[in-house]
Design a protein around this nucleic acid. Structure first.
Length: 266
DNA sequence: ATGCCGGGCGAAGCCCGA
């Protein structure tokens, strides 16, 4: 079963691209970020017509995340625990089924954090602490958990086209990478790097400066798996095709395949 | 040092993203 994540940069501006991608890639679960609309503005009917149940955490103009699932979504929760005053729509979590097995999934839009000498960076660091704490609580459930989305974190030098030029950016600062590692060190597996050693594979290319044509990209969209989910991991790939189409998002989808049984038993 | 491009908002030009 296929679980994909994609920062679409406005679901309404991107609707034709998203529908053709769903129709062709056929993910069983799709995690969307930066939908940039309130719940009522989400094109629910068009997405449901393709066979998906929908959970939306929307917001006017900025942010906004959603989960699409072929199996019904249950127990949806909106917002990341740990700060009742945080009103930015960056987290939605729900439970569904894959091959009849329960799986908990979250769509995450982690704050960008630039510029680093502002409150935006402090907010990013606090948000990552909250995500780590919640990720730890989810581990205690001993369920398959998939935490997917736009993390706005470049994990390593090989995940950015110009590491030296990006050293002080909020996506690559060492304290941000350390907090990302803290989540992995709880026991989560970063799907792409678990299966691919090659460097220079990206999920984002800036609209500006011909970044796509020059392959000046970043790998910042990630699928993190709890041990119970990681045992099922069979594949993980970056689908570059949507980034090359007309009127694209600046991100492209990343997906993973979870098998029906642990690979060790196959 | 700043804009580059593109979306939202709203009807021009600014805010924001990564």
């Amino acid at each position: 079963m296929k679980i994909a994540t994609w920062n679409v940069n406005s679901i309404r501006a991107r609707l034709p691209r998203v529908l053709e991608w769903l129709d062709g890639a056929k993910p069983d679960i799709a995690l969307l970020q930066e939908i940039k609309t309130v719940d009522e503005g989400f094109p629910r009917l068009e997405v449901e017509a393709l066979g998906y149940d929908v959970a939306v955490a929307g917001q006017k103009t900025y942010n906004g995340v959603a989960i699409l699932s072929r199996a019904p979504l249950e127990d949806a929760t909106f917002g990341l625990p740990g700060d009742d005053a945080d009103d930015q729509a960056r987290y939605v979590e729900a439970v569904t089924r894959l091959d009849g097995r329960m799986v908990r999934i979250a769509s995450i839009y982690l704050p960008n954090g630039n510029p680093v000498d502002t409150e935006k960076f402090a907010y990013k660091l606090r948000w990552m602490d909250r995500l780590r704490d919640h990720a730890r609580e989810l581990l205690a459930l001993e369920e398959p958990v998939v935490l997917g989305g736009d993390y706005n974190v470049i994990p390593e030098d090989g995940d950015v086209w110009d590491p030296e030029g990006w050293r002080d950016d909020a996506l690559f600062r060492m304290e941000v990478r350390r907090k990302f590692r803290e989540i992995l060190n709880l026991g989560y597996v970063e799907s792409y790097r678990a299966l691919h050693s090659e460097l220079g594979r990206y999920s984002f290319w800036d609209y500006q400066g011909g970044a796509w044509q020059k392959d000046n990209g970043l790998r910042i969209d990630h699928l993190l798996l709890s041990p119970q989910a990681a045992d099922l991991l069979a594949a993980c790939e970056i689908d570059k095709a949507p980034r090359g189409k007309a009127k694209p998002s600046d991100h492209t989808p990343v997906w993973c395949e979870l098998g029906a049984q642990p690979l060790s038993r196959m």
